[in-house]
């Protein structure tokens, strides 16, 4: 994941502001992840690979997604982990 606070090394007074911004952004992202649980998600991966799966969970540092019923070109994988490094983006309907 990403190193913490670069801006604040230069100006310690910015630290509380930056921490607040970080928490607001993270909370919003976690709520988004939460709402994705058990929804059908389309993953866009490198080399124009597109797969669909039911989203279950993510680890805290967003390195892996746990999914069910992953539709691959050679069949349906009941349970799977997707490496986030392989994913460009994913979409779902809220």
């Amino acid at each position: 994941s990403i190193p913490t606070s670069a801006a604040c090394d230069a100006d310690p007074e910015l630290l509380p502001t930056e921490q607040h911004a970080r928490s607001v952004l993270r909370e919003s992202f976690l709520r988004c992840l939460l709402s994705m649980a058990n929804k059908k998600i389309q993953f866009h991966m490198y080399e124009r690979v597109k797969v669909e799966a039911t989203f279950r969970a993510s680890d805290i540092d967003v390195l892996n997604f746990q999914v069910s019923d992953l539709h691959t070109p050679i069949g349906v994988q009941k349970e799977a982990l997707i490496r986030c490094q392989d994913v460009i983006s994913f979409t779902f309907d809220a």
Partner: peptide, 16 residues
């Protein structure tokens, strides 16, 4: 590839 949309948030951990 290009995507458009309203930016809700950026995850501070993964920059997504």
């Amino acid at each position: 590839e290009e995507r458009r949309g309203w930016l809700l948030t950026v995850d501070p951990v993964s920059a997504s």
